[in-house]
Structure formats: C-alpha cells, structure tokens
Amino acid sequence: MKYYLFIDECGDHGLTKIDFHFPMFLICGILITDNENEKLKSKMSKMKTFFWQDHTPIFHSREIRKCANEYKILLDKKTKLKFYRELNKILERQTYSIIPVGLNKFNYVKKYGNLGNDPYELCLSNVFDLCISYLKKQSHANELIIVLEKRGEKEDNKLASHITKIISKGTFKNSIESFKSFRITFKFNHKKEDLIGLQIADLTAYPIAKYLLNEQALNPAFDIIAIKILQPLKKILIR
C-alpha cells in the first residue's frame, strides 16, 4: 500500500532572530494512504467549488485567518461560519494522521546555543522516525512518497541531502533495515500546484504550534484536529 507524507512548517527555523511573541518552530507531516488522499482531494475540491465557482484557490492558513486576498469572502459572517463548518467537517471526518514535531527556539538556544542542530533538520528527522515506526506496524504498507514544499534551490538542496542521508543510513530509533522495508522517494512541490496534502499540513501546523505556545489558550481549530495527531501531545515538543 502506498502512503504519502506531506510536509509543511510553521514559524521561522532561524535561531539568530527569534520573535518574542511567537518563538515556536514546527514541522507538520500529514500521513495518508493513496486511496484516502484521493478521497480528501475530492472533498476539498467540492468545497472549493461551492465557495469559489470560477476557480479553486490554494488553502493558506495565514490568508484564511486574515480574510486576505481570495478569502475576503470570509469577511461576511455567514459565509465565514459556513466555510469553517465545512472545513472542520472534512478535517474531522477524513482518514489521515498528523505527525507534528516542534521546538521553542528560546528554550532550544538556552540549552544548546546558536550552534545546535538545524531546527528544521532536527524536527524533520523526528517526523521521519515517527512515520517509519508507524508504517512498520501497518502490514500492507510498502511505499512512502514524501512531498515537501519548495522553499528555494539552496534550502531544498541542503534538505535533500539531509533526507537522503536519513533514508540511506537510518536514525537512532530506526535502523537502515527499517527504512529499506519501504520504497521511499521524496520530491519538492510548489504549494500553487494545488496538492491538497500540503494545504492540510499548512492548515494544521499553525493551531498545533499555537497549542504548544500556550496549552490553555482558546484554540478551536486544534480541538478539531487533536484526535488525528499520531503521538501523545506531550511528545510533540522537543525539550
């Protein structure tokens, strides 16, 4: 059985300039089977067509929250209510798993300094570990396609090297043999290519990062998706 792992991030992974109000960095993986991915695409496509009859916009968390650009339609309260009701229904009912790994950059620098491991690569390695550990328990899983959002040639090449190293050498928690159990490939795509898995990763990353920043804060979006998170909530954050 073929699985996809769609990867997106929330926050800036740089350690030199840290936003006091939002020091979180999080990698969010959406793990989904090929069949379920097709179902999810169909549901999202119908929803987009309902609200935008003449085109299908790319879902982007920040623009939706700000009611910006194509999402100005959400300034109408009735439309906004219906939009979120339909979106939440899809996110809640469709079959997929969320694998988020994040860190508080202030705490990370305090513990390891500015010369610690690259937060992006560190979080991504942990996402891969959790993903492979899960797939080993799925008797029919035999292929994994990792899809990441393009960030830039230099960044993508550096990340491609890191991913290749993980796949070829394994990790502390999963051996080379564990990775070799699956046909693993990876690719980089623009979000504008309308891959719904990348859009779901984008939509779910922010509420999870917000939860990590303040578990007690009102966070209805997180409440909708929390049940989809693969690992225990207390293990999302790298300490």
Rank of each mutant, 00 (worst) to 15 (best):
F51R: 03
F51V: 03
F51G: 00
W52E: 14
Q53C: 00
P57E: 06
I58K: 05
F59Q: 00
H60F: 06
H60C: 06
H60D: 01
R62Y: 02
R62E: 04
R62D: 00
E63G: 02
I64Y: 09
R65Y: 13
K66T: 08
C67V: 04
A68I: 07
K72L: 12
K72G: 15
L75Y: 15
D76K: 10
K78M: 07
K78H: 09
T79A: 05
K80S: 15
K80G: 04
F83D: 02
E86N: 13
L87I: 14
L87V: 14
N88D: 14
N88G: 13
E92A: 08
E92H: 09
E92C: 08
R93H: 11
Q94R: 06
Q94G: 05
Y96I: 10
I98D: 01
P100M: 13
F106K: 07
F106L: 09
Y108V: 01
V109H: 02
V109Q: 01
V109W: 04
V109C: 00
K110A: 07
Y112Q: 11
L115S: 15
N117M: 12
N117G: 02
Y120P: 08
L122G: 14
C123W: 05
C123I: 02
S125I: 03
S125Y: 02
S125Q: 04
N126W: 05
V127E: 05
V127W: 05
V127G: 04
C131H: 13
I132T: 04
S133L: 09
